[in-house]
Nucleic acid binder design. Structure first.
Lengths: 377, 377
DNA sequence: TTGTAAGCGTTATCAC
DNA sequence: GTGATAACGCTTACAA
């Protein structure tokens, strides 16, 4: 590479636009190239910093500074740059910015499913904080599949996200290794992890289930059934079951396997759970549902059977979905801080990214829960 | 820039790693730089293509080809590259890839709210197709605010998304201009736009509301109230009201402004709507709710009042949420193809991006709706 | 089939 | 305070 080479390159680059009062001292052999790229960024939206610089009569560095750190530039320069940016309709290229600065403004979020309100409340909290902080959210689903999660993590790390939020606390070894190696801050949620990857924000599924079961036991219920969601590949479900069992032990009640009803998701499954429970143990006097829709379905089934709640059977739900306070009787629920979890998780993650708040490393934040006592118990 | 300069640069770059059986013919003055970058990519996750190339004893271009277009490389080379990638744990940098190729694998989605099931079903469809096609989803909320939407569009264009999905059909002039200038394909949804930006996939809110109202009218209801969600900054709500009014006209019924109940969102609002309606027009004999939660709330309120449905009042809902088929009586609803809209929108957008399917430009796809006739009417 | 060189659009760094 | 230059990590274009 010699002098002339460098010149050619420069000429090719500069000739994209002609600033007022500046002669075009080039266009020898690059006509074709120029037409192509000129067309590509016909709209100012695709213009480059170089174009702005030329128009403002400054260097690209001045444009860069004027845009990302205005104080490091004189008022006059700032003015000229801002004007040029507006005239052109220039939009800074975040890709180039990230590549060059090795800083990312993107946060990756992985949830089991994007259409389950359980997660969407948390996503809401995340989304609000993240956007307010100038970050962008990348979202992907992983089902209840660790391998799928690993794939998505790989993709997100490839996109060089600045942080990762995982609604899950169990990961493949490979996933853990990649995250460790990448040095990207991570918040886990959905449960309090035994072995946190980095940070975690959640409530405790086992504590919550235990508290509700204890509550029911103390009210005098002796045959408390538990409608249990799929525990395969789901530590949240497993922990809820654990909490239920622990409470029984503490209550001095012998756990009856027939009272643990394995159920699918959704209202229909809740209805079935009622049927199964009463069939297995006719004297069942309370049903604790491991999910909100489950409880709603159970409610309607009980109503259909003409059962009084709590007369014939008491009903309690793991999640406080809106529907449950509009039913009659209103249903006792566990209120989980889902929105707050999102807010807090985002705040912590962004602190780590922006302020290098390394003291947060390893924090596991328990945002607790609340039993909302209503008529059904 | 002269020969020696070039050499220095090269040396600095190459000395990051030492391939087996390759002497390190450098390390003169770059010790410091090297330590820094070596540390930064200690984990192979942050390694560069160059590192893989060195290890495999090939050029970066061979690595690049082996990874993105394996057939353009000999079997042996492919093998060597794959091995090196695995050994190092290399993850290609999507940022650099996109910047260099001016192709993006990111799609931006803008919805009014991420925690409303109305949108999440569509997001589910989008998400599945997008991920299967190797794209990534960026999500942001815009509320019901055009200016907010414009801001997000600006950010997304800055991130150089390959496509845009807007759950909204009304935009600021500025937003339209930016999108036009950027030449990024767009799908609008949520309504059938009068003035499509590019492509659109939806059902017609006015047609749906009209169909349901006609259905009620034909059943003989004479005083059909309409619980109307906020119409400010929301063409979907406005169109639903239009459809209702048009149906009344077609039925030969004179619209009664007192029967149009402006309501907030949520079940509580649905309950209030019932109260308002009967207060304003005691002889009201049907209530058509402009949203699913509204209908659920209205249902419970009617139940509380001991009203027979449809004996005292018929009830119909704009959206077919699960709850409504578990109530007794079951509620008549409008089933909207929300999930399919997501799938179709993603497919069209990706066709445009990948296959340059320009014939799709301008398509407005109407995925229709369905009246689910149940006991409440 | 493989490699070399230049460039994607920005920022870090170091002169001035 | 401002600018020139190299670099971020990859791909395009072209040469071998």
């Amino acid at each position: 590479m010699d002098e002339s080479d460098t010149d050619t390159k420069k000429a090719a680059r500069e000739s994209g636009d002609t600033a007022p009062g500046q002669s075009a001292a080039d266009d020898t052999q690059n006509g074709l190239l120029e037409n192509a790229s000129a067309k590509r960024r016909s709209g100012g939206v695709n213009a480059r910093m170089r174009d702005v610089a030329k128009r403002a009569g400054v260097s690209t560095m001045t444009v860069s500074r004027a845009l990302s750190d205005p104080d490091r530039v004189s008022a006059e320069m700032r003015e000229r740059v801002i004007t040029a940016v507006k005239e052109i309709g220039y939009l800074p290229n975040h890709l180039a910015r990230s590549l060059s600065s090795t800083r990312s403004t993107t946060i990756g979020l992985i949830v089991p499913s994007v259409d389950n309100f359980i997660y969407t409340q948390t996503v809401k909290g995340l989304s609000e904080v993240i956007r307010r902080s100038g970050f962008q959210l990348m979202v992907a689903e992983c089902g209840h599949d660790e391998d799928e999660e690993e794939e998505v993590i790989k993709t997100f790390l490839g996109h060089r996200v600045g942080g990762l939020i995982l609604y899950n606390t169990e990961h493949t070894e490979e996933a853990r290794a990649m995250i460790r190696a990448s040095d990207v801050p991570v918040v886990e949620s959905g449960n309090l992890p035994r072995r946190p990857l980095d940070m975690a924000v959640s409530y405790s599924n086992s504590e919550a289930a235990k508290a509700m079961t204890l509550y029911l036991g103390r009210l005098g219920y002796k045959k408390i059934a538990f409608a249990c969601l799929d525990t395969r590949n789901n530590d949240r479900s497993r922990d809820r079951r654990e909490g239920y069992l622990e409470a029984l032990k503490q209550l001095g009640q012998t756990p009856d396997p027939r009272l643990i009803i394995d159920t699918a998701r959704g209202m229909a499954a809740g209805a079935e759970a009622v049927a199964h429970a009463v069939e297995a143990v006719p004297e069942v006097d309370a049903l604790f549902c491991g999910g909100g829709l489950l409880a709603a379905g159970a409610f309607f089934e009980c109503q259909k059977r003409g059962w009084n709640m709590p007369g014939r059977i008491a009903l309690a739900s793991f999640d406080d979905i809106e529907m449950l306070h509009h039913l009659s009787p209103t249903v006792t629920t566990l209120r989980l801080p889902r929105y707050d979890i999102g807010v807090r998780a985002a705040q912590m993650l962004i602190s780590r990214i922006l302020d290098r708040a390394d003291h947060l490393k390893g924090s596991v934040v328990d945002l607790k829960f609340e039993i909302i006592q209503r008529e059904s118990t």
